[in-house]
Amino acid sequence: MGVGTALAETWVRRWERQQERYAVDREERFTVIADVVEWVTRGQPAPLVVDLGSGPGSLARRIAARLPRARILAVDVDPLLLELGRTHAPEAARYVEVLIGEDGWLAELELELDGPVDAVVSTTALHYPEPGRLREIYRELAAVLRPGGVLVNGDHLAPADPGLAVLSAAVGRAREQRQGTGGGEDWARWWAEVRQVPEFAELLAARELRPAPASGDGNGLSVREHEELLREAGFREVGTVWRCGDSCVLVALR
Results as ranks from 00 to 15, higher is better:
32 V>F: 03
225 E>G: 09
166 V>Q: 12
45 P>Y: 04
192 A>F: 00
174 A>H: 06
250 L>Y: 02
151 L>K: 00
12 V>E: 04
11 W>L: 08
201 A>L: 00
75 V>K: 03
219 N>P: 03
24 V>I: 13
100 I>A: 02
152 V>R: 03
170 A>C: 12
240 T>S: 07
224 R>N: 03
197 V>C: 12
140 E>W: 07
193 E>D: 15
167 L>V: 08
117 V>F: 03
103 D>R: 10
12 V>L: 02
253 L>I: 13
113 L>H: 10
184 G>Y: 03
34 A>G: 13
237 E>Y: 04
228 E>A: 11
80 L>S: 14
200 F>E: 07
56 P>R: 00
238 V>R: 13
10 T>Q: 13
147 P>F: 07
197 V>D: 15
165 A>L: 00
18 Q>R: 13
80 L>K: 10
2 G>F: 13
49 V>C: 13
188 A>W: 04
129 P>F: 01
31 T>L: 14
103 D>E: 14
46 A>I: 02
11 W>F: 09
18 Q>K: 11
82 L>M: 12
170 A>M: 12
99 L>C: 09
20 E>K: 15
159 P>I: 04
235 F>D: 05
34 A>I: 10
222 S>C: 01
241 V>S: 12
146 R>N: 11
6 A>G: 13
71 R>W: 07
94 R>N: 02
158 A>I: 02
251 V>G: 02
87 T>Y: 08
239 G>T: 09
200 F>L: 14
153 N>L: 06
196 Q>G: 04
76 D>F: 02
29 R>S: 11
155 D>C: 05
23 A>S: 15
195 R>F: 00
215 S>P: 12
38 E>W: 08
220 G>K: 04
151 L>E: 12
72 I>L: 13
42 R>Y: 02
131 P>G: 07
3 V>H: 06
98 V>A: 13
134 L>K: 09
174 A>K: 04
238 V>I: 01
225 E>S: 01
69 R>V: 14
184 G>C: 12
218 G>F: 01
207 R>L: 05
61 R>C: 11
239 G>R: 05
160 A>Q: 12
204 L>A: 09
205 A>H: 13
84 L>K: 05
145 L>G: 10
252 A>T: 11
182 G>H: 10
41 T>R: 10
47 P>M: 07
164 L>A: 14
42 R>I: 07
68 P>Q: 04
243 R>H: 01
234 G>A: 09
228 E>T: 13
216 G>L: 11
222 S>K: 09
169 A>L: 09
250 L>D: 01
106 L>R: 06
167 L>S: 06
34 A>Q: 05
18 Q>F: 03
11 W>S: 11
186 D>P: 15
108 E>W: 07
216 G>T: 06
127 H>T: 04
8 A>M: 12
36 V>T: 11
